[in-house]
Design a protein around this nucleic acid. Structure first.
Lengths: 341, 341
DNA sequence: CTGAAAGCGCTTACAG
DNA sequence: CTGAAAGCGCTTACAG
């Protein structure tokens, strides 16, 4: 056997050269035809595509990434998977990106900027095609890495007017204001704000709540119950119990997330506290099950799927080198007025 | 400028050659030292590692994958993200795989073997390091692809004794049997089985339910209410209402999943049907919120995190070329007896 | 224990 | 519009 044969490490898979051979063109032409690059004669494109199909050719992503210095991977960094909120966003992102040949890579930051920075560092080493990140709360090092990488990036969940920043979301503060205003319009006077996790978006909702109550001269800092613990139905129940014990004058509660609110509603049921008679309850996000509660939960429906899809679409454009029509997409929110308020 | 300079496409990133140069060794030695391959002098390893650290060297995954014919990617295929069940599994998989340098890639099959086959085809083109799949219900083509790929694979959620198949799960049928037996022991005579989605594991639970009732001479096919619709709290409520109307003699319900059961419980509350007085209600999986229901839901706790972690550990071993101690890991289940039964 | 050569399967940059 | 050459950044296979 000759030395060139001895050195072979061929994996047995069908390569671009096999396709080119079958189509009787050079590998470069085959490559161009398959990628849909314009400037290839139509009949050649046809021949190459047919050959590729017949041979069952699948391009090697690693080779492609190495040669082009760009992969098809799109890291998507979210705080948590246990919040249905982000799962909905991710599903929409997947559905939008996959048909275009991009691979979303889910990273979970646990609301920790340090963890996000680490993930970013490792994902950026993969030369991703694009980046989908949650919010604007990150370390300076992370910001630097994103900027110097020149990888197209779209931010989810929040909005900013900062230049050269692409974002898709809605105003958390305005939504917090709107649901509070609804309680005021229903003649509630002692409106509590009960929150967990205390991530940036929760705090923005709190700002909306405060602004609204101050406008009406109803603000009372004692009615804010903030817990850094992770959000859960159990915690919502505990916080409501706590609230009713220590602030018995309260006549409405704005829970910063529906899981807390659902737990609160069930606790009210257990305690025999009438909702909305004795106390009105509202939530945030309109998660699964909120409409099934007893009574059904009034809440703010947030555009989760729409955000996932729109951010992925915007990123798709950026990855193609296009300029999006606008940097910031406000998808708004919807009031779901139900029996609990 | 000379022709070799003209051809350069160097990306500016620090490469293995840079590290080798700094450490005054050849690139091959640097490669071996960095990968912890044995057979490199300790002092060289030390020098290389120091140089890599100083230069901030991060290996290029694409180059590595191309040269070694193996990536660090591990596709994880699950039916759905909207079921908290799979999200818990995925989180455990992530936590276990990431520290070892592997990248889980989540794929969603929507319970459709065709979709799974497609995903498998595209993921396999990436030369994954390993594979994590849900259950055993797939197309013959998918089975072939997995076999011929020789990629190590571990199956989740179900068990089999088939040779050369690695799986981590529990007996869905035994769990279905156990929760039904619990209702029989509580003197229930007319026990209904209410299910949605009707995926393979749901049907295995149904088998356990039937076997148990037949053993006690209580089986009645009319008490099975099977809906192919996706599972949800809303559907659970609707099915309970339907059941009470068309089979008023029923005195217990086994819902195949907790979201259905939670919806059923809330519907009972709305209808003023006493649980467990008039009717006992049990669920499956012990999802978030089940312990907060009114009354708290009796259910089967399934080992979701444990399955995620154990399957990832088993895969880690297989990817290292090790033989796992056993092919099939039964992680069991736990009865959560609460107020609803 | 160490290294020079070749190769993995693509695409870029250049030339015609 | 098409192609021969070189290169992307690693690792394998061989030799010493």
């Amino acid at each position: 056997m000759d030395p060139t044969e001895r050195r072979r490490r061929h994996s047995g898979r069908t390569t671009l050269s096999d396709v080119a051979l079958a189509a009787e063109v050079s590998p470069i032409t085959a490559s161009r035809a398959l990628r849909g690059e314009r400037g290839v004669a139509a009949d050649l494109v046809e021949r190459v595509k047919r050959a590729a199909e017949q041979l069952g050719y699948v391009p090697d992503p690693a080779a492609r990434a190495l040669a082009s210095q760009r992969s098809t991977q799109v890291p998507v960094l979210v705080p948590l998977l246990s919040n249905a909120l982000f799962v909905d966003v991710l599903e929409a992102v997947h559905r939008t990106l996959l048909p275009h040949g991009y691979q979303p890579m889910i990273g979970v930051t646990h609301y920790d900027p340090q963890e996000e920075e680490q993930l970013l560092r490792s994902y950026l080493a993969h030369r991703p095609a694009g980046l989908l990140l949650t919010g604007f709360d990150r370390t300076e090092a992370a910001r630097q890495m994103i900027a110097t990488s020149t990888v197209p990036c779209v931010y989810l969940m929040e909005l900013t007017q900062a230049p050269n920043v692409y974002c898709v979301g809605f105003s958390q503060a305005d939504a917090g204001h709107a649901i509070t205003e609804h309680l005021v319009q229903r003649d509630r006077q002692r409106i509590a704000f009960v929150a967990a996790q205390l991530d940036p978006r929760t705090l923005q909702r709190a700002e909306g709540y405060r602004r609204c109550l101050r406008e009406h001269g109803l603000y009372d800092a004692r009615l804010e119950l903030l817990s850094p613990q992770p959000s859960s139905m159990r915690l919502g129940g505990e916080l409501l119990e706590d609230l009713l014990r220590t602030r018995p004058e309260v006549d409405a509660v704005f829970f910063c997330n529906d899981d807390l609110a659902q737990g609160g509603l069930l606790m009210a049921l257990k305690l025999g506290v009438n909702v909305p008679g004795r106390i009105a309850v509202v939530g945030f996000n309109d998660l699964s099950g909120s409409d099934q509660m007893v009574p059904p939960l009034t809440t703010v429906r947030t555009p989760r799927r729409a955000m996932g899809e729109a951010s992925a679409q915007m990123l798709l454009g950026l990855m193609r080198g296009e300029m999006p029509p606008r940097n910031s997409m406000d998808l708004g929110f919807e009031m779901m007025l139900r029996g609990s308020s």
